[in-house]
Design a protein around this nucleic acid. Structure first.
Lengths: 138, 138
DNA sequence: TTGTTAATGCAACTTGGTTGCAATAGACAT
DNA sequence: ATGTCTATTGCAACCAAGTTGCATTAACAA
C-alpha cells in the first residue's frame, strides 16, 4: 500500500527521506484527516515545522494527499484517491467520521453547470453536529 | 431592513455605534460574503482591526451575521436569515455566486442521523469551479 | 449635562503557515 | 565503501489573520 506510493515518489525522481516515509505511513494508517500540527506530533522524528508544510505541499503536488477544510484556520489533509466521501464533524469532541453519499451531488453539479453557467470542478460538503457518543454524553 | 436590525440591537441593550451601523449597512447592501479585511476597507470610518473582529463576533452572537468558510485561512461572513443557500466559488476570479438547492440535503441529513447516529446541526456545501465569464475568458 | 459602561484604539501577542540560506543526507556512480 | 550531486532539512526570521489587556472615548439614560 505505502510501498506503491514510495515507488511512485522514487520513480518520479524524488528521494525517500525518513520524514517523507513516516508521513506517508502515518496517513495510510490514519482513520481521519490530520492537521499539519497533529501530524508533526505523531512523527517519531519530529521534523521542523517547515519540513512538515513543505512535505504536505509536495505530497499534494504528487497527488498523494488532498486538503480538506473542516474548520476555519486549520487545514486538514487526508490520503488522496479514496472513495469520494464527505465528513461528519462533531462540534463537541472534534471527531471526524466519513460518509459516502449517493451520486445526487453529481446530478446537482450537472444542473448547476446548465442553470448557472458555472462549471463545477469540485465541491466540499461537511456536516457539523453531534456524534453518537456526544449526544448521549449530556 | 437595517432599521429592524438596529432596533433589535438597541432593544437587547447594546449601543448603536458608528462602526456597528456601518457594518450592518455594508452587509445588507453586499451581494456576496465578505472577509473581515474586505469589510474594513469598505467602511469609511476604517475602524481598528480589533474593532472589526469584535464586531463580527458580536453580530454573530446576536444572530445577525453568520460565518461561511469559502477558502482556507480566510473566514467570510454574510447576513444571517437569508434563504438557505450555498455558494459557487470561481477558482479564477474568486467571485462568489449563490445557489438555492432543493431539500435533498435535508433528506440526506435525516438519513445520516439514522444511519450513522450523527445528529446534523448544520452543513456547509461549496462548489468550486469556473464561473461563466472565466470559462470563456480562456 | 453628567455619569455609567459599552465600545474603541492601540500595542503587544498568538498561531498557522512561509521563506532564504547554510548544513545535511539520499541516491547513484566509482 | 567513498565521493559527488542536489533534494531535502533545520533554523531563524518573517508574514498575515485573528486575539487580548488596558486606558480612552463616546452612546445613551437620567
Amino acid at each position: 500500500m505505502q510501498e506503491e506510493l514510495f515507488q511512485r515518489v522514487q520513480q518520479a525522481g524524488f528521494r525517500l527521506t525518513r520524514a517523507r516515509k513516516e508521513i506517508v505511513a502515518t496517513f495510510t494508517e490514519a482513520t481521519r484527516p490530520l492537521s499539519a500540527i497533529e501530524l508533526r506530533l505523531m512523527l517519531s522524528s519530529m521534523p521542523n515545522k517547515s519540513t512538515i508544510y513543505r512535505e504536505l505541499l509536495f505530497l499534494m503536488q504528487q497527488g498523494i494527499v488532498v486538503e480538506v477544510q473542516l474548520r476555519p484556520d486549520i487545514t486538514h489533509y487526508e490520503l488522496a484517491g479514496q472513495v469520494h466521501h464527505h465528513h461528519l464533524v462533531c462540534n463537541r469532541c472534534d471527531g471526524v467520521e466519513d460518509v459516502v453519499l449517493g451520486d445526487d451531488l453529481h446530478q446537482l453539479e450537472a444542473q448547476i453547470a446548465i442553470g448557472k453557467r458555472f462549471k463545477v470542478e469540485r465541491h466540499s460538503l461537511e456536516f457539523y453536529g453531534l456524534c453518537g457518543k456526544c449526544q448521549t454524553a449530556g
